[in-house]
Simulated scan of single mutants.
Amino acid sequence: MSFLVTAKQLYEAPLPASPDGRLSYSSVLLSRLGPNRPDFEARLGRALAAAERRLQACSRDASDPRAAELTGHLTATGGKRLRTLLALLAAEFGDPSREGVVQAAVVAELVHVASLYHDDVVDRAATRHGASTANVLWGNRMAVLGGDWLLARAARLAADLVPGAFSLNADTANRLIAGQLRELAGPAPGEDPVEHYLQVTAGKTAALLAMALGVGALQAGAPEAVADILIEYGEQLGIAFQIADDLLDLSSPDAFTGKERGQDLLAGVPSLPVLLAREDTDPRDAELRELIEAGSAAGADWHLRVLELFPSSRATARAEAIMHQRLARAKGALESLPPLPARRTLDALCDFVAFRTG
């Protein structure tokens, strides 16, 4: 089966459920992108299942059952578990059976899930993974505290990792918070909005993917130079991944992404295509630029017209070009790594990210 067909199936066709009903996306992604090595896929599949069990158990550690319900809400509703998978793939460059590898993958996923609680409050998001967000169900204050609890839980688990992985987790938490603060503050006077976007994305998205790869490699005992290469790959992949999400928000039906189409647009999130459309002086995209600047003042359904105009705009083409540049850098970073099945899977993941927006 061709890669393009399988990528299409991952998003448009029902995925086969795993025995516990939670691992379908990451497991199928691994099987489709992997190098057709049953031993490799079986080993990663067992590790994914073990990480999922530990992830689900984390919220149950909360002493109050109401707190457990809150902190377990997003993990219970699903998710790609991409950070889990990246950590386990990175561990393949060391000893994947080494103690703490699964725990490192759980730490990476917990930090990511915690960030989603905070993001949904800031963005006033109503749904995620096809379910109501924690801020809708429990209110903003409870949702923020739920994210804080998960960050604290991740920090406690990270304390048992090797020193390099522990330090990387701490540094990433700092980058994540700095990225969120930069996003809320907006560009400084005279700062290029696109450069500001890339800095925010590096802190909020790329840092999490890089951390997942780094902690997985370091905990598995991979050489520090290998971990650095994987971290750089994650930095580039993360920025490309966020740009792909920006494009999907403007072009894909709700069923494709699990989020309301145009949600970021309505919330005023300065995504890359929107920023590029604002600075575009091409007369052919004048209507798009004017509608974005006017916002709701242009009418109740202004965003529907914007969603119609974006796919054929120069802003979309430019955003796609920047995404492909980052993916090329990610692929280039892998070239000096040994040709393990994990490397081929990481390389194929870049192609998959590109296909999502095709």
Rank of each mutant, 00 (worst) to 15 (best):
A51H: 02
A51M: 09
E52H: 14
E52M: 10
R53V: 15
R53I: 12
R54W: 00
R54I: 00
L55R: 02
L55K: 04
L55Y: 04
Q56R: 14
A57G: 13
A57Q: 15
S59V: 09
S59C: 14
S59M: 05
R60M: 12
R60N: 13
R60D: 13
D61T: 14
A62V: 11
A62L: 15
A62W: 13
S63G: 14
S63R: 14
P65R: 07
R66L: 15
R66F: 13
R66S: 14
A67I: 15
E69P: 00
E69Y: 00
L70Q: 00
L70R: 05
L70F: 02
T71Y: 09
T71K: 08
H73L: 15
H73D: 06
L74F: 15
T75Y: 01
T75K: 07
T75W: 00
T75P: 08
T75I: 14
A76E: 12
A76C: 08
A76L: 15
T77I: 05
T77W: 06
G78S: 10
G78K: 00
G78I: 00
G79T: 07
G79Y: 04
G79P: 09
K80I: 02
K80L: 06
L82R: 02
L82H: 05
L82S: 02
L82D: 04
L82Q: 05
T84F: 04
L85M: 05
L85K: 02
L85H: 04
L86R: 00
A87E: 03
L88Y: 08
L88C: 05
L88N: 01
L89Y: 07
L89F: 09
L89R: 00
L89V: 02
A90N: 07
A90M: 12
A90V: 08
A91D: 04
E92D: 15
E92A: 03
E92W: 09
F93N: 07
F93C: 08
F93A: 09
G94I: 13
G94A: 14
D95G: 12
S97M: 11
S97F: 12
S97K: 14
R98V: 10
E99Y: 09
G100Y: 05
G100F: 10
V101L: 01
Q103S: 15
A104N: 11
A104Y: 09
A104G: 09
A104R: 05
A104L: 10
A105L: 04
V106H: 03
V107S: 06
V107K: 04
V107D: 08
A108D: 02
A108V: 06
A108N: 10
A108F: 02
E109R: 00
L110I: 07
V111M: 10
V111T: 09
V111Y: 01
V111G: 01
V111D: 01
H112N: 04
H112L: 12
H112C: 04
H112G: 06
V113K: 01
A114E: 06
S115W: 10
S115E: 05
S115L: 11
L116I: 13
L116W: 08
L116A: 10
L116Q: 04
Y117G: 06
H118R: 12
H118I: 10
D119E: 12
D119C: 09
D120H: 12
